[in-house]
Nucleic acid binder design. Structure first.
Lengths: 138, 138
DNA sequence: TCTTGACTTGGATTCTGTCCATTGTAGGAT
DNA sequence: ATCCTACAATGGACAGAATCCAAGTCAAGA
């Protein structure tokens, strides 16, 4: 339990039943749901919640820095609530499963100044791809 | 000139005027076009070419490994023909400009065995993000 | 030249995400 | 406890990206 709701309350995020449900659905480790998946789960608890509200809430959580957007496949964006601990993602090319992983070292350090072209680089998102044990060929 | 067309011919890719135009549009360095941009440029040379054909051709080029899909922003996928030379991408958070960059070392090496969870990991895609000189604050 | 399997077409469809005017409500003020 | 009001939720319309499909066309080998 990572206390997402408590943090949000502490930051003065106006709480509504809809927002609470979205935050509850997202809370946890190795969670990488699409907006539609979040909506589907939220509907179980609050049948009338609309898709627009879910999109709004997710957008704000991202703006607050409590959730990060992940786009590993060019399809639907996924939402990762584990924003307070730096990590990268390992994706199975077969089934699409996503795992949080922790590489050694700082990926930013691998980009030398002469490869920065005057940019002020501040993040490096790494997606490792391969086959999970279940999808590996015999 | 990277010889994309020659390679495709050599691999027995059935050539049509549509496929030739798509390959010609994509060929080059620092090319990161969306499917719609490819279509727009293809139309200049071959006015009747359809969107579906462009999508088909791009999908096959990706399957052949001659082009890689890049999804840096959760919006439209982009197509990068520079697949034969390992590189990563530096994206401006302001204007969306993309540059090919070459980090030092092998990003795969940073993921220790105990962080692979039995996956057979074969690629690491790195997206560096920051602001380009034109978008940097005063 | 003929034949055939592969390719192209464009319109329909699905999926993802945004917008907006209206209605509802959380939470501070009284 | 009640009232206010700024902020939030709603849902239907809309837009963008990508896929699907049945019918027509064509590249390339025989």
């Amino acid at each position: 339990m990572s206390g997402l709701l408590e943090r949000l309350r502490g930051r003065g995020w106006r709480m509504t039943s809809q927002r609470r449900v979205v935050a509850e659905v997202l809370d946890g480790d190795h969670v990488h749901l699409t907006a539609d998946e979040v909506h589907a789960r939220a509907v179980r608890r609050l049948p009338e919640i609309s898709r627009a509200t879910v999109y709004n809430a997710l957008g704000e959580l991202v703006a607050l820095g409590e959730v990060v957007e992940v786009s590993t496949d060019g399809r639907a964006r996924r939402y990762d609530p584990n924003a307070h601990r730096a990590h990268q993602h390992l994706v199975c090319s077969g089934c699409g499963t996503i795992r949080d992983v922790h590489p050694t070292g700082d990926p930013l350090a691998a980009l030398p100044a002469e490869e920065r072209f005057g940019f002020t680089v501040d993040t490096a998102d790494v997606t490792y791809r391969g086959l999970c044990p279940a999808c590996a060929p015999r």
